[in-house]
Nucleic acid binder design. Structure first.
Lengths: 123, 123
DNA sequence: ACATTACATTCCGATATAGGAATATGTCAA
DNA sequence: TTGACATATTCCTATATCGGAATGTAATGT
């Protein structure tokens, strides 16, 4: 099998850097496709294709207005991603604490050693 | 061009569901490959390949111990992802506030309408 | 009706996967 | 040394991309 399709979930959709750019651009306000094209300097068909992917996974909303289509980021759909990553927060805080505590211990025991290259410590 | 390589950054590496499983499993403690294989029920070569990808982008650390290799999630490497998603937090809060305010306004003005199907509102 | 504007879609080619099977590498134990 | 164990790598195939170019489609203006 090949890689999971990008239309399947937000994680895959967001893996593409240009789609992240589009999401950031559309976060604050509705914009027609033409403005995205101009602002981000991407070819129009490319933008349309990325918008289709984003729309399929619910990361953007769309509204028609005359011959324009106004797109806007659906921030709600990004929450699961934020929450998944947040799951690891206690672990990186724990790692930071260990680094901090080692640094303080070193400073107490041999302050003059603080200016030399630190040994590569196993965490 | 094809899709960006999964070895390039954390966003792509994390797009694969099985890799997310592995990261979660390795978040709290070091584990040898064999335990991952058993715990998650994936074929061993598959686990090794996913671990290579995760290691290449710095999402896991590795340490040799005899004939085993102990892997562990590097939670720090997940922070950029969390922060990127967090960028949108103010927008989804804003959306939630609007929903909440509309609900309260409706409750004040016509409490008996709260039990019928709400009109599809444009946000 | 016709031209124009605003987007979307299709066709194409190159490439990067993921998974399965088989095999290779490296480490310890008798 | 030989063998068992733990993990990594290679070979293979099917498929899902992304980008570019060209074309299709729908709404508006004259």
């Amino acid at each position: 099998m090949a890689r999971a399709s990008t239309t399947s979930d937000a994680f895959n959709a967001v893996a593409e850097p240009r789609r992240r750019e589009i999401l950031s651009y559309l976060a604050g306000a509705e914009r027609p496709v033409g403005e995205i094209v101009e602002a981000l300097g991407m070819p129009q068909p490319s933008v349309s294709k990325h918008l289709r992917v984003l729309h399929n996974v619910g990361l953007v909303h769309m509204r028609c207005q005359g011959r324009q289509k106004l797109y806007r980021t659906n921030a709600q759909a990004i929450r699961p991603l934020h929450e998944w990553a947040g799951t690891f927060e206690r672990y990186w805080q724990h790692q930071l604490n260990r680094v901090k505590q080692r640094a303080e211990a070193m400073a107490r025991e041999s302050p003059q050693a603080m200016n030399v290259a630190a040994p590569k410590v196993q965490d």
